[in-house]
Design a protein around this nucleic acid. Structure first.
Lengths: 303, 303
DNA sequence: GCCAATTCATGCGTATATGTATATCACTCA
DNA sequence: TGAGTGATATACATATACGCATGAATTGGC
């Protein structure tokens, strides 16, 4: 191998890659946790080292030259390989200290995970946990999270998934809302009731119909993509919402809405990279989450 | 894209790659033009950053751990991409200043190229030339040279080749040697004469037989893989050798050996990377070499 | 069996690169 | 038109990383 040809500064190549992808030096600096002057100098130094003008300094932002356009392809290959280096290294790492990022819905993050993670803090004090609230499945494969708590079965072969259990869910509302009608609510009342929406109202209607409720999107007059906010609206009596029993049980003012509606169940999956599952740190957190999520059960038996 | 996962130091990755490939930190340092302590620290820092032990410090040299063995695969991909970055950048570079490495046989380098390159120095003062003497064809693809002067047609699709011309060659010897027999030499004398060998005597015998000479390896009692040295032996009257007319013509004491042996011809090819041919600097040198090599002709018409 | 030659790791002075602060410019919105 | 936002490039102080020198340890050769 001829090493002479790779003696240019690889960190400058990284600076170039991120700048090209992000579009501006400032954005690249933010993404890399460096400062804009540093990126500016690194890109300029790479241009000088390679003898190629990579960016056309036009007006506000930078635009790739033809040469830069061709070079960024190869640098992107470097970046992809670097990503695999990082992934594989995380998987190989046998040290327990360090950061683990967990992706979960905001409701899980706010109401279910804290207790479980508090125990983990005792068991593994060196582990630092970051809770990422997102409903996207791709954050694992984009390596924005190490472990994800999901409610659908992932099918990508790179992912390792374990089904924890099925969890019951039903429709809940504030006691004031549910009992404010002077009589027990039944599914026949559904068309006239307000429901709180989350992210996707269409999808929510489908779920509600699965309960046997005759509702449409017209029944959703208040919604928030933030689940914790939406749940707060429920608590304050603005409407009804589907909720996992075990979460609803944590709120004394919350009661099941309908007399005659059976709970449905949804799965809880724990997912990680196949490669990351060999890491001692990831494994520790994964196993603790699995055990903790299995143990969480509604504290009261409804009905 | 998630840039968080590639924020480890890429230069440390490069240090790891070269160290893994070269086997020792010292060799890697020499290859990269850095010092051994620097490589030592970079590798150690990468191990800490990734949380993985890459090398087992056993006795004298380093041995890759299992984790390191897996990681080096990905880092090698980075290196390959880096190599393409460098190659493409050289090709894209439109600046004329800089280094161009020319690979040629030592005889070409010593006796034909200097005059041509002296002219180039006038035409393009900013170009720095490094003459690499090697008979291997692969130095272009391994990117050890930018331009090669070759005598066989390259067939690799990545290479751009231009045939300059056919050049005549015949068998020469020192005047003292050739005329010392008291009569003109003919091909019938060949079996009793000494020939100076180069690199591969078997191959040389094949060439000599192509001249119609009945010789074997027994006729080669003195040889040197260094063509300039071998030629010096010819000049000092130790034996005969095949030589390009245009080179032999530069030496007054050298005469064609045989009355009745016709010259053969061999091709002169100029070769470069297909990508490098778009570089202004490479192009300048390539075109100048092509013109210069076409112009060089024997100063005397033999026979 | 010992000396020479390499190897890797560490301390120290210096050179390099980074961050902070600032200047300049372009675009947006009032 | 004029203030505000967000972009890049430069000046300066500082923190980081590098090279040199050295030491410890092992291998290979005579």
């Amino acid at each position: 191998m001829n090493w002479q040809s790779i003696t240019f500064d690889w960190n400058q190549a990284r600076a170039f890659l991120v700048t090209a992808e992000e579009g501006t030096l400032s954005a690249a600096a933010r993404a890399l946790g460096l400062t804009q002057p540093t990126l500016s100098r690194q890109v300029a130094a790479l241009e000088q080292a390679l003898g190629v003008t990579l960016f056309e300094r036009v007006a506000k932002s930078l635009v790739l030259t033809e040469a830069g356009l061709e070079l960024v392809e190869h640098v992107r290959t470097m970046g992809d390989a670097a990503s695999r280096v990082s992934l594989s290294a995380s998987g190989q790492s046998q040290q327990i200290e360090g950061l683990v990022t967990i992706s979960a819905t905001d409701l899980m993050a706010a109401h279910v995970l804290p207790d479980i993670l508090a125990e983990l803090r005792q068991k593994a004090p060196g582990v630092e946990i970051r809770l990422l609230c997102t409903n996207s499945l791709s954050d694992l494969r984009r390596r924005e999270a190490d472990i994800a708590v999901r409610h659908v079965q992932p099918d990508h072969p790179d992912l390792y998934a374990r089904k924890i259990r099925e969890a019951p869910a039903r429709i809940f509302g504030a006691r004031s809302f549910v009992e404010g009608h002077g009589r027990k609510l039944t599914r026949a009342d559904a068309p006239t009731l307000d429901f709180i929406g989350f992210d996707n109202n269409e999808e929510l209607v489908v779920y509600l119909r699965a309960f046997g409720l005759d509702v449409s999107e017209a029944n959703i007059r208040l919604s928030s993509p933030n689940g914790v906010v939406a749940w707060e609206l429920v608590r304050q009596g603005f409407g009804l919402s589907i909720m996992a029993d075990e979460i609803a049980a944590r709120f004394p003012g919350i009661v099941p809405a309908f007399e005659d509606v059976d709970p449905i169940t949804f799965p809880i999956w724990l997912v990680t990279h196949r490669e990351l599952h060999t890491s001692r740190r990831i494994r520790t957190v994964f196993d603790h989450l699995a055990e903790g999520l299995l143990r969480v059960r509604p504290e009261r038996r409804a009905r």
